[in-house]
Amino acid sequence: MKPYRTMARNSMQSTFAFRTAFLMAAVAACFQLVATVALWSALLSNGGSIGGFTLPEMKAYLLMGYVTGWLGNAIGEWVLANRIRDGQVALDLVKPIETQKMMFAQTLGGLPMELIMIVTVGAGFVLVAGPMPGPSNIPLLMLSLVFVMPIRFCIAFLTTQLVFWTQNFHGVSWARNAVGAVLSGSLVPLSLMPTWLQTTAAVLPFASLTSTPALIYLGKVSTPTAYLLIGVQAFWVVALWFLARVAFRAASRQVTVHGG
């Protein structure tokens, strides 16, 4: 347990060291928030609703998109990708610690800084963006938010493993982020999407990242459905964790050392 704790600690420390980076990311996120709110305000200027979302509801939805977007980003996937690429990951394999757990500890260590970003910018947003509904069921919302970080971690850890087969992580991460933006519901609520996209989203884990917490926040789902959705989140955590584990073992068995 100790090495993982140290890892988390180091990770926390480095998020503070790179606070300017966080600040910049927060600024970018702020702009994005303001801009999307502006877009939706223009779309809903006549006081109507789209797909059952009124403007105040949409603002709350975007807030949840911002909040969930922060959770679990400190995985350090680029470091892992580079280590896989230059073959250094082989060194990790002989150490008595598991790469997956180590990286999870690292992701955990980033949470404090992420929470700071969430609370400061989020509070500012609530103050500036004007009236929006509060969370309809706080305990359920919190419960569903807890699952966001591990799911994002597992997806990131799994996709980073693609570097075992391709040298280029840029493309992989961009494509994943784009697909994730659509299927998680962070771009637009899933209920607005064409049916085929909704069906796709229903069988993939991305919706658990944003759509589930946002719908629970807004009370767009009944309490039993909320429990069901949280159950789905829990399922994804377990399933993806073991999938990632199996995949990493299989992949690292065929570590190819490049360069040398």
């Binding site: 087969w165 391709t166 280029n168 840029h170 992989v172 961009w174 494509a175 982020n177 784009a178 933006a181």
Partner: peptide, 20 residues
Amino acid sequence: ADFWILIAAGIVTQSLGLVF
């Protein structure tokens, strides 16, 4: 492979706005 992955990533990313 990287070449094609990057091109595909570019197309997918650009499609985001169109989806929206």
